[in-house]
Simulated assay, not measured.
Amino acid sequence: MPADAHEPRSTEIEAPAPQSSKSRSWPRRRSLSIALVAVRWLLITAVVASAIWYFVRMWDDVQQALLQMQPWRVIASFAVLLVGLALNVLSWTTILRGLGHPVPVVRGAQIMLVGQLGKYIPGSVWAYLAQMELGRQYGVARARVLVTSLYAAGIGVVCSLILGALALPQISVEHPQLLWLFVLLPIGLVCLHPAVMTWMANLALRVFRRPPLDHRVELRTIARAVLLCLASYATYGVHLWLLSDAGVPFTTVLLMAAAIGVGFTAGLLAFVLPSGVGVREAVLIGLLGTVMPVAEASAVSLVSRGMFTAGDLLMAGAAALAAAVMHRRLHAQDVRTTEYSDVAGS
């Protein structure tokens, strides 16, 4: 018989080995991730609902103005507007790629277009937050999306003021209070210099604790974004001309492009208003009133506002649908370029 056969067996249960800090923190990180996703989708839902509500609320007034216009010109105007919105998406995506994230156009359109619906909530910050959270969901650093959106807005201001210079005589008469906006033009041009743009982007990335750019933003990237933005404003000018009476000469397109550009800039500064409502219309009516009756300018401005809202919703929906159809391919690209480890398993 073995020597230890009569020794009492221990009744103590062996204590489990202490869990590593990594395994203890996993449920906490998982809960935080779920909470962030829930907040992200609540934000997106609120943004889309606000844009839809805004459009429904103004539809009766827009419908009355539409009845006074030629149907073919209205349809053509909306089609041209969609082209302008698409050019704006390409400008935004060009900047994001130049800042070091090779996002596909469809994914960039989804982030930019769905996120920008936040402008229909009073306070422009909601658009930036929605874009940042959408970018984060697909592996793009929040700081990179924020810098992209800020630079896209800056390029929009610069381009609007370049075009606005063509309408300085009309602006000085109709809206002399807007002349101070042109002080922003040299400041904006300096900020678009590749060295300044790279420095500011790295500063934002550092604040968000993301790695700095491994390259300097190229001049051709900035030039392409600016040209696309100018082309976008030009199509908006055609969009306004098509809404006007057939007797308005096509040579006024540049004035209309300048009017809508300066109107956008003035509305951007009125950030407490949803999408700069009222401010943009005042600028448009004042400048369009130099080439058409004020009543007609008011109708054109009102219909244009409704079309922009409908276009924003349609383009955002199309981008989201295209991203859903191309989900597998886009997700594979998200995983290859992600700046967050949890995107690969999402």
Rank of each mutant, 00 (worst) to 15 (best):
G263F: 01
V303H: 02
V238E: 07
A282Y: 08
S275L: 05
L288N: 02
T252S: 12
R305P: 03
L288S: 03
L219S: 10
F271C: 01
L269P: 09
I222S: 00
L287H: 02
G276K: 01
V226E: 01
T251E: 07
G237E: 08
W241R: 15
A299E: 09
A316Y: 02
V300H: 05
G306M: 09
F250D: 06
V294Y: 05
E218G: 10
P293D: 10
G263N: 04
R280V: 07
L230N: 09
R280S: 08
S275N: 14
A299K: 12
L314H: 05
L228E: 02
V283Q: 03
M315R: 08
P211C: 12
E281L: 09
T251K: 06
L213I: 13
E281R: 06
T265H: 02
R305G: 06
S298P: 00
L314N: 06
F264W: 13
S275M: 10
V300W: 09
M307Y: 07
A297L: 13
V217D: 03
I260A: 03
Y233D: 07
H239L: 04
G311H: 07
M256E: 11
G306E: 04
S275Q: 12
V226C: 07
R220V: 10
V303W: 00
M292G: 03
G261H: 02
L313M: 05
L302W: 06
A259Y: 05
L314I: 15
L268M: 15
A246M: 11
A246P: 00
L243D: 01
V226F: 13
P211E: 12
L254Q: 05
L219I: 13
M307E: 11
L302I: 14
R210F: 00
G286V: 01
L284M: 15
A258N: 13
A259E: 06
L227P: 03
L269W: 05
L269N: 10
S275G: 11
T265N: 04
P212G: 14
V300Y: 11
L255R: 05
H239G: 00
A270R: 13
A231P: 07
I285N: 01
A266H: 02
G247H: 14
P212E: 14
L254Y: 04
D214I: 12
R209L: 14
L268S: 14
R210M: 11
G289V: 01
E281H: 05
T265K: 04
P293W: 07
S304Y: 03
V283M: 06
S232H: 11
R220T: 08
A299C: 00
A246Q: 13
T251Y: 01
R216E: 12
A258V: 14
A234N: 02
T309L: 15
H239P: 00
G306A: 07
I285S: 01
P249Y: 01
M292F: 05
V253Q: 09
A295H: 15
C229Q: 14
A257D: 09
S232Y: 03
R209W: 10
V291F: 12
P249L: 05
A310Y: 04
C229L: 02
L213M: 14
L269Q: 08
I260L: 13
V272C: 06
A316F: 04
T235P: 00
F308R: 07
A299S: 13
G276S: 04
F250H: 03
R220A: 06
L269S: 06
